[in-house]
Amino acid sequence: MNINPYIIEFLQVAVVIGLAPAFVGWIRMLKCWFQGRTTAGLFQPYRDLRKLFSKEIVLAHNASWIFRFTPYLLFGTAVLAGAIIPILSIDLPLAATADVIVLIALFAIARFFLALAGMDIGTAFGGMGSSREMMIASLAEPAMLMAIFTVSLANKSTSLAEIVQVINSGQMMLRPSLAFAFIAFILITLAETGRIPVDNPATHLELTMIHEAMILEYSGRHLALVEWASMMKLYLFVSLAIAVFTPWGIAVKGSLAGLPAAIGFMIAKLGIAGLIIVLIETGLAKMRIFRVPDFLGVAFLMATLGMLSFFILD
């Protein structure tokens, strides 16, 4: 029995919006356990969001429309990306809207506006966050592209649905090129989603902030949207990695029977991904900002090695 792909599409967007805070909650919970602290539970991020939505907004006198528009745009691009990445099923009506390169550009447009919002108020922190964020993004981009390039070499496509289909149908198991690309992708994900060792999502120490510095002036529902969008971004990057490198278990042609299994697989894989992130975060300290180019250089090197090994070995 098949169900309408539009229903799956709708379901998937709902899952991305709904489960993103739980994923962040899971990471925080694991982190607490690793550091021997008691946890606030899986649902604390939901409570945080609810609190923020009910608070009033305090805006600086000179905040322009860009500052007020940015939270909605961040949320909008995240939702759109959530409709494009094959998370539950390959057969998504909107999947053809964007290939991997467009998807990265969707995150780039969100980042562009967030950086502008950081500069809108005219505080030193906002500008500092924007400047650093754009620097890291520029260095992450070539590494990201090389990783995509390697993956697309193996699949002869940059279309996500096609990549997932090729890998899922088992035409290619464990290629060294993909292993290199996978390592590169993990490093880039850490940089792009602002995790340790590049940025610390928990810090409010002035000189170490990057993402937090840009959103320092936000409050109320604006802040809630920004936070929610950044949770979704983490969720989507991890989902992207899962889709590209380990898509096994995803529902193939909109079959009703495959859907619960797909959700089960997704939750299991996200659980493991959270564990990996927490292992990295507890194992490493945050780097100095000017060490980040080295870190991303390694990512670039890994991706390039992946490409070379494709030409040499495959």
């Binding site: 691009t77 759109l80 909107l94 290939d99 467009v102 279309s159």
Partner: peptide, 14 residues
């Protein structure tokens, strides 16, 4: 299969 892009849907979607 190779790659696709729809600027229109990106615009309307956002």
């Amino acid at each position: 299969e190779r790659a696709s892009y729809s600027g229109f849907i990106v615009f309307i979607g956002i």
